[in-house]
Design a protein around this nucleic acid. Sequence first.
DNA 1: AGGTTAGTAATTTTT
DNA 2: TTACTAACCT
Length: 716
Amino acid sequence: MSDYLDRLNPEQRASVETIDGPLLVLAGAGTGKTRVLTTRFAHILLTGRARPHQVLAVTFTNKAAKEMRERVADLLGGPVEGLWLGTFHALAARMLRRHCDLVGLKSDFTILDADDQVRLLKQLMEARHLDTKRWAPAGLMGIIQRWKDKGLPPARIGAAEDSDYADGKALDLYRAYQARLLELNAADFGDLLLFAAEILRTHPEILASYHRLFRYILVDEYQDTNLVQYYWLRLLAQAEKNICCVGDDDQSIYSWRGAEVENILRFEKDFPGAKLVRLERNYRSTAPILAAASGLIAHNAGRLGKTLQSGKKDASGEKLQVLAVNDQDQEAREVVERIARYRNAGDSYDQMVILVRTGAQMRAFEERLILSGTPYRVVGGARFYERAEIRDALAYLRILNQPADDLAFERIVNLPRRGIGDGALQTLRDGARGQSIPLFLSARRAVDAGSLKGKARDSLAKLLLGFDRWRATLARDGHVIAAAEMLDESGYMPMWLEDKTPEAAGRVDNLKELVRAMAEFESLGAFLEHVALVMERDAAEGEARVSLMTLHAAKGLEFDIVFLPGWEEGLFPNQRAVDENGNKGLEEERRLAYVGITRARKHAMISYASTRRIYGTMQDSVPSQFLDELPEDQIERIGLPRVQQRQPWRDDFAWSGSVAAVAPRAPQARKFKVGARVFHQKFGMGTVVGVDHDKLDIAFDHSDTKRLMDRFVEVA
DNA sequence: AGGTTAGTAATTTTT
DNA sequence: TTACTAACCT
């Protein structure tokens, strides 16, 4: 009965058996965090302390939720129904659908994705005649998201939180954006949490009903929670206080998405009497890898403090290699050569990964991998449901589900080309705004009233008739048949079938896959909900491949062999992260480095180049300060060009000795003042006429005044 | 209405 | 370097 407890080490066991009251489990990388969470869940059920639906279990990713669900099922001997187990967003959406009338939404509200959000906001900005080149809609969207991350609806934003972005119109646009979402019966990701928390905050009787329901709360990756998620949890936990949060402050790498490490650092204050357990026995990596990672992360201040110990019987292993190369092409060549060597020695490609700081680094590796015929996969990047053809097809489906979905309507009304251009669309928009009706209805009236003519009228009439027909098919034959019929008759699928470009065939396959996937859902609404919240792509199994991904995407994964290229000042730690957030930014970069190293089970190789091509121009680079922070006795420096030639075109920098042995520090913090003379690669000499954080307004001698990032110019 | 070209800027992205 | 967008021709 309790043999599942015997498989745990003492700390893990304490984490599982400390059931009542608040508990924080600080789980270092590779210390069995998921095992603790799932065992604790099962333990609560098996000891009869709660029924399955009385436990709230929250994760960040669908993948983590899925894994927890499966492992709990394993422990219990079969799948369990009625669990409140899912991502923050999925669980908040589930709550919100129950109480949506309280915030002015209907229960079939649409969940917008990032692309829809920005398009909508851009429309609102254009309606206010804001220059969307100067004020990027995506930038303003970021500000709105941060507000939502903090649990602030427009009404609760005071002067302290307000932004001067977009000529001080940010708050006004936030208000307009929220109003427009309600008109569209839509919510964005941030709203799910924001509204869920607001409802709990302002309706004590609803909050009390959840207090009666949830006896235990489990939270994964607590270091990544933002403020609104924290409020939501705290409200739900304030009655029973049986909340268990698992996390690792050293792996907090999403502050730029609104995550607040402070949430985990503050846990014991928030929940008086909280117990704390540290999981420090690592079962993943060799001793040198652990020692190197620990040595690096020790340079961060303000940690809860944790030292990874090896929990493996034989943790001996080789030192981390630190490779110096001349440029990114050589770096890619060296890495891919080593991949081949490991493979020849019997390692599987599946167990090798290249972890980069930025997407731009991937190209060099991809080229080299292709050239050498090494199978690889890029993890992350464009997901299935983010592909253009899938989003187009989904727009059709959304209109079928909810004709008032104006964003979807705009996306596909002229796709494939139907001769409905900007002029015709503007007529429809004017009609919709004038009569306060959705675009779809406005289109119908425009056709009937003859306010459009010619080709636009004819093809729009045909499209509207089509939707009537497809809706009838939906009612009669179900969503799968209706979808197939719609994609075909609307001309969307034929458009790709006739397309002769190389990627068209893949798009057709994706569309077929989409229709196939719909069969697993009861209704069109259920399918669309899944797509909005559970944007997971089925991991294509099959041939073993090397993985290529960003460091962020690697969190939670592990590999035998890990390559960590691009450890250069400016790139990693990333200049922008440091510019924007100072020492906090630098510490987050260091945590990212820590995450990278701790992904490795057996081998890790870090590399850096003395020259790198950035935006087409060659730039000298300096080894990352993180290299100096690695314990020297745990690393082996290889491949160094003993004497680095002094670059003749850079007089201001003299190499002292070998690149690898002496790591020069990064220069000066960038400080520009109004009036400073600066040089830009492309625009030449200019004078600074305005400073806004890291952005400078520069009057160029031979061009206009432009707004540029300060790191693209240098002091003249 | 739609394809072409020139200008411009440039992290990370769990949901 | 590339990717994206807005202005520009047909």
